[in-house]
């Protein structure tokens, strides 16, 4: 660190001088190409959602106009009004909120305890547990679909919210334990040792000292678990029918008056309503999310 900061200022200075000194044609072309690429990346990533927003507030006739009308002539909120007055959609929204928050709460409560033990305590059997957790973060959901379906039916939980909460724990809990364990492990040991020497039990050291320090990590993992639960489709489609339907299968199976006519305005309005909170959440917490994703991935 020290050497690089000492050397750094000297070198970039000379390079910028030589760069600004002579604006050759090649350099200008390079610059222009670079910015075209940057603009292209932004348009490519943002356009589909932007298009959904624009289309969802177009008058119905303009939504299906050929050639395509790129800007609405007037604002039309009827799709949103329809979706927000739709009992099925509102129930799906409520179900998604309940399931996602429950899954995050349970994952964090159980996961942080296990992560503390995995990250800070030495015990026999730690390696098998670690491998169990790690392998559970990798195996495909489809591998247990049939047997979970059987189990859920046997417990009488079909089309009920607990079925989804249980099913979602299969991927959020191992992930939470894994990321938080790495988080706990990275903390300096002195704090905890000081508390232990002062007579605190390991459990007290955990919830008085380490847990508050782990709060940022918990926010990140909680957020990622929330997004995973909110966006889940396969289990929601299979384990629910109507009562416990969540937003993803609801959006996937929006139907119109006839079988052949898709109510695109309603689908897009519902899509925007379901996605906007996530997009805002991601933009607000982008640094944390990136840190969490890279921690989970790089150490995985």
């Amino acid at each position: 660190m020290a050497t690089s900061t000492a050397v750094r200022p000297a070198i970039p200075d000379t390079s910028t001088i030589s760069r600004t000194g002579q604006w050759t044609f090649g350099k200008v072309l390079n610059r222009v190409l670079f910015w075209i690429l940057v603009v292209f990346i932004i348009v490519y990533t943002v356009f589909p959602f932007f298009w959904a927003l624009i289309s969802s507030i177009k008058p119905n006739a303009e939504l299906f106009a050929t050639p395509v009308q790129y800007w609405p002539s007037q604002l039309n909120w009827t799709f949103y009004q329809f979706v927000l007055a739709n009992g099925d959609f509102l129930r799906a929204l409520r179900n998604s909120v309940i399931v996602s928050f429950s899954v995050v709460a349970i994952s964090l409560a159980l996961g942080s305890l296990a992560a503390y033990a995995m990250g800070r305590l030495k015990f026999r059997g730690r390696t098998p547990v670690l491998y169990l957790i790690l392998s559970m973060t990798m195996f495909p959901q489809i591998a247990i679909l049939g047997s979970l379906y059987q189990m859920i039916n046997a417990l009488g939980l079909f089309d009920r919210l607990p079925a989804l909460i249980i099913a979602y724990l299969t991927f959020t809990l191992p992930f939470t334990v894994w990321v938080l364990a790495n988080f706990f492990k990275a903390m300096p040991g002195e704090l905890e040792e000081a508390a232990l020497v002062d007579g605190a039990t390991p459990l007290q050291a955990f919830y008085r000292i380490l847990l508050p320090l782990a709060a940022p990590g918990m926010v990140t993992t909680g957020l990622l678990a929330f997004i995973a639960a909110w966006n889940e489709y396969l289990y929601a489609l299979t384990f629910t029918q109507s009562r416990a339907r969540t937003v993803q299968p609801a959006i996937a199976s929006f139907t119109g008056n006839t079988q052949f006519e898709l109510p695109w305005g309603n689908i897009l309005a519902a899509s925007v309503l379901v996605t906007l909170p996530l997009v805002i959440l991601v933009l607000v917490f982008q640094r944390k999310i990136l840190a969490g994703l890279t921690a989970g991935a790089v150490k995985g």
Binding site: I41, T45, V46, P48, F49, W51, A52, I227, W230, N231, Y233, Q248, P249, I251, A252, I267, L268, S271, V274, T275, L278, V279, L281, V282, L283, Q286, I289, L290
Partner: peptide
Amino acid sequence: MLIPWAIPTVVSSQL
């Protein structure tokens, strides 16, 4: 660049 990742797959598929 985080936006496509944040959009649920069901929603992006419909889009």
